[in-house]
Amino acid sequence: MTDEQDAVPETLATYLRLRGLEPSPRAKRRRRRRDPDDEHQPFTGGRDPKGVGDVLNALTREAGWSSNLDRADLVRQWDEVAGVETARHTRPVGLAEGMLTVQCDSTAWAKQLKFMRAQILTEILRRYPDAGVETIRFLGPDVPSWKWGPRAVPGRGPRDTYG
């Protein structure tokens, strides 16, 4: 063994000097054994500080919040997932049982996005795998309902001109 391997680590030697203790010559010769109380000792492995992001990621994983947070991030960052121009004309309105429902400004946007469904779904699964999105449903604009009152007539009525 070389002198470097036998020597007390510099961090531990500094700690002992600051406490007024000198490392014993015996400590240099004997091999360091893993003590069960080792995690409470300074300058040992596993005692390095962790970043706030790492701590929060571990907390959300342990608490089971990752799917809810991914869903919230998906809605909040919809313009990055779907694209800025598409996001101006659409907005996610619901996510239930694996189906993301997206409201569009016009039926033309809804029809065009149906053709792009696979591309948008792939991007969602790449960015937010824990969100639980399996399919996307695109809806046209909300139109007024003509079905009200006791004398409502079945059929399409004047609604075929909207959208």
Rank of each mutant, 00 (worst) to 15 (best):
A82M: 14
A72G: 07
Q41G: 06
P144A: 07
R117S: 15
L95Q: 06
D3M: 00
M1G: 13
T86C: 14
N57D: 15
G163E: 09
R156N: 04
R127M: 08
P154S: 13
W146M: 03
C104R: 04
R19Q: 14
R126I: 01
E97M: 08
P154G: 09
A63Y: 15
D38E: 14
A82P: 03
Q119N: 11
V84M: 04
W78Y: 05
A13N: 04
P129M: 00
G64V: 11
L125I: 02
R19F: 04
A110E: 07
G20L: 03
K50H: 09
G45R: 15
A27E: 11
V133P: 12
L69I: 11
N57L: 14
I124Y: 07
L12N: 02
T86E: 10
V52Q: 09
G157Q: 13
T107G: 10
D3Q: 02
A72Q: 02
R156V: 13
K111T: 14
D38W: 11
R34P: 00
I136Q: 00
G64I: 09
Q77E: 13
G132M: 04
D54Y: 01
R71K: 13
V84P: 08
R151N: 13
A152K: 09
P154E: 13
D35K: 08
K50D: 09
V81G: 07
L74N: 08
R29W: 04
V93R: 12
Y162K: 10
